[in-house]
Nucleic acid binder design. Structure first.
Lengths: 155, 155
DNA sequence: TTATACTCCGGTTCTCCACTGGGGTTTGCA
DNA sequence: TGCAAACCCCAGTGGAGAACCGGAGTATAA
């Protein structure tokens, strides 16, 4: 079964990789306090993510130091630090593989190019600003609030 | 020769299509007043863009109503309206093929998905806000200012 | 009429995304 | 000690899109 897009083709093209990673971390957040690891299978079935694919994403998140893994029987994944100390930027940048910055010497330097660089940089900063603003904890709280709204509509 | 990126892999991934299109329109802007068309070849060689590729982009811009074309000998392209009446959003959205919006019924509606949609939308709006802010005329003026700076450094 | 330009169509190479699969290694527990 | 449950690593695949190239056709100024 193919996935349903959260959001259609976007100027800011946050791929489903980022969505999946975020969903997984949202799933892990409530378990941070207890220290109990969660298994890939559980996360995958809960959020409807292909498990073998999620495995790769979690490996990336682990290498970036956002989650820890517990090998062997009864192992799994858990958040490496408090959910309010992980921003969406942390998640997206490591999954999407943001480069640090442009090396100005490697870049075209006609006046036109420099002007476009400036604006492109502004767009980038605007987008990153939003991602810097939210932590995993914020997202969890938003989700809980949303859940209340959904229940109200259901009644 | 392969192109040199204006900006490295960007969260907001504005492809070289957008860059090329913008460069071309920047080239056309000063000729708007005179009404003299500019040929693909001239634009391409001036801005170092593969001409056959630029041709496709200009065709897209024409279909979007941003430029007009004059066929036959001494033909070429010219801006369809004043450079201060064309925003960067106009350019990027038609080149990048932005969709109008998400169809909410087509979209996952778990609480998690809705929350992520919300944030993704914020990121999108932040990025688009910057693109809405600038017109071609602004870019031309920025370029001229930049040119002055370059000359100062050169001396 | 002819050279010059755009127009339309197709193909090509490359990279990335979104997966899938096949091994291997570590670890808790009976 | 053995074994199954979990992570770990590597490799490949299919499709889509980016970034081109090329050719045949069409309009138009001179």
């Amino acid at each position: 079964m193919d996935r349903i897009a959260l959001y259609p083709a976007c100027p800011v093209d946050l791929s489903s990789k980022s969505e999946y990673a975020l969903l997984a971390l949202l799933e892990l957040s409530p378990h941070y306090a207890s220290g109990e690891p969660l298994q890939i299978r559980q996360i995958a079935s809960q959020q409807n993510i292909p498990d073998r694919y999620l495995e790769q994403l979690l490996a990336t998140l682990r290498r970036a130091g956002l989650v820890k893994s517990q090998r062997g029987a009864r192992g799994g994944y858990l958040l490496a630090r408090d959910p309010w100390k992980i921003t969406l930027y942390d998640v997206v940048s490591c999954i999407e593989g943001f480069e640090p910055q442009a090396d100005p010497t490697q870049v075209s330097n006609t006046p036109e190019a420099q002007v476009i660089q400036g604006v492109w940089g502004e767009v980038r900063q605007a987008a990153e600003g939003v991602l810097h603003k939210y932590t995993l904890q914020d997202m969890v709280e938003k989700r809980n609030a949303q859940q209340q709204v959904d229940i109200m509509y259901y009644i």
